[in-house]
Design a protein around this nucleic acid. Structure first.
Lengths: 110, 110
DNA sequence: CTGATCTACAACCATTTGGTTGTACGTTAG
DNA sequence: CTAACGTACAACCAAATGGTTGTAGATCAG
């Protein structure tokens, strides 16, 4: 069927990005405020490079953006990725509602 | 901090489960109708065992349920997992709205 | 009863993931 | 200018992931 190959891998990256507690925390924080990469790194019990990788994963998933400011890199939440993830889950919710509606129909005519 | 360790790994499993196109497709189909494991397996260009594993991942994430019927196993969509995933993304959306509200406040008093 | 079917699960393999350390390079502070 | 800082990236490693084949136990059909 090959249903929208591009969107599929985009969704893979999105949900993969959400599937890690450190990354979810980074998204939260970077949405509330502004953080440098090392500012974020200071928050977790892992190396700077590990956090840097997490940020890179989030950036590829459009869940954060990075903006260079002098020698620092400012990390901010990016609404775009979140919206896309929510849109998919909304589709699934819609499928559930249609299913419920069909059940109701069957009961009504039965 | 150890914020709700249980829920965290539950969310890991949930989003990890969504991070694969075959699994997303299985959830869709199993929500619309009923499928046996081999009925699902027939739909994809991979082995029965591979599909079986995907179903197991979805089951652990509460995105589908399995019910034994004779020698068959009926796979159905499970609303529970979807709801939990949606609830998390709604939290994140809420954070965005709060952020937007704060921005508006700053502009208003400025 | 016997053979085909459906499922489960183990063992294996290649690739990806999530972490590490080390090196290099631009930028800022003193 | 020089030292410290912030970042990027490569190389490496262990564990997890996504796939395979093969074996075995239930259950159903003829």
């Amino acid at each position: 069927m090959v249903v929208d190959q591009l969107r599929e891998s985009e969704l893979d990256r999105l949900f993969q990005a959400f599937a890690d507690p450190t990354r979810r925390d980074i998204v939260r924080r970077a949405t509330v405020g502004e953080y440098t990469v090392s500012g974020l790194a200071a928050l977790y019990a892992m190396s700077f490079a590990a956090v840097q990788k997490h940020v890179a994963v989030l950036e590829r998933a459009s869940l954060v953006t990075k903006e260079k400011r002098g020698r620092e890199q400012i990390v901010r939440g990016n609404h775009e990725g979140l919206q896309k993830a929510r849109r998919l889950l909304d589709e699934y919710e819609q499928i559930w509602r249609q299913r419920a509606a069909r059940m109701a129909d069957i009961l009504a005519e039965g």
